[in-house]
Computed example of a mutant assay.
Amino acid sequence: MTETFVLVHGAWHGGWCWAAVINQLERLGDRAYAVDLPGHGMNRADRAKVTLDSYVNSVAEFIERRDLKNVVLAGHSLGGLTIPGVAAKIPARIKRVVWVTAMVALDGQPTIDAATTPLAAAIDSMPERSITIEMLGKEAIDGLTNDMAPGLKEYVMAALGPQPLAPLLAPVPMAPYFATGIPSSYVVCEDDHMPVGGAPNWHPYFSSRLRNPTLKFVKSGHEVMLTHPVECARALHELASGD
């Protein structure tokens, strides 16, 4: 059975990061699309005006414009904040939602509490209200690239762009997504060393916030779609098929 995937990137990335996964999904007989969220990749929206709602609306409109149905909606990393909103907005078009080593919010809570995060105030005063990964320091860069070959690391670091702050400060409504009853899945990257919220692992720290998710495990670091695209595509395909 041919599956239809819409792939949502995470912080600093663009739709470009899914290229190899799309190639592999097509080899498996599926259709796959990657979006550029506002202010990312080829989407030249003003980063200072980007919000979580604009992320959600852009993906929902992408799906509606193409009249896509039975969509397997997958989000990587920060993309996990966008995908539940999309599913709640257009539930009749969504078959399954997959968090790919991605953030799962607590209902009504933001990713970053601006009141207790000094860096947030500094970013908020910048013209683009955005942050680069370099601003987070060596630990974040090492965590992001821990299993990359030198050439791939060089390419990825050159391709990453600024990340707008506002989506990280916005409360994320999860209850509307859970109310849809759309099945949830989580791709667990066993070597994900990207630091997050003081937790040692993305699984089960985030995955446990979902309701009865199906899990797939991949021996990979955080950037699974770039370092292990074959395994990432296979996991997505099997989750979509219910395997």
Rank of each mutant, 00 (worst) to 15 (best):
G85W: 02
G85M: 05
T51Q: 11
A19W: 05
G14M: 02
V97G: 07
W12K: 02
V72E: 02
S77G: 04
E61P: 10
A105P: 05
A34L: 01
I94F: 14
T82L: 07
A105Q: 03
G15K: 11
G75M: 07
K95E: 15
W99L: 11
A105N: 00
P91I: 05
V50P: 11
A114D: 05
L52Q: 09
S54M: 08
A115D: 08
R27W: 06
V21A: 15
K69Q: 15
P118T: 04
V59T: 15
A92D: 15
N57M: 08
A87G: 13
R31E: 11
G75F: 07
V71S: 08
I22H: 13
A19F: 07
A74N: 06
L106R: 13
Y33L: 12
P118N: 07
K89I: 02
L25H: 05
P91M: 04
V104Q: 08
A87C: 11
L78H: 10
D67V: 00
D36Y: 03
R65L: 10
A32S: 05
S77F: 08
D30F: 03
L73T: 09
D107A: 01
V59D: 13
P84Q: 04
G41Q: 03
A74I: 01
R47H: 09
V100S: 04
V97R: 02
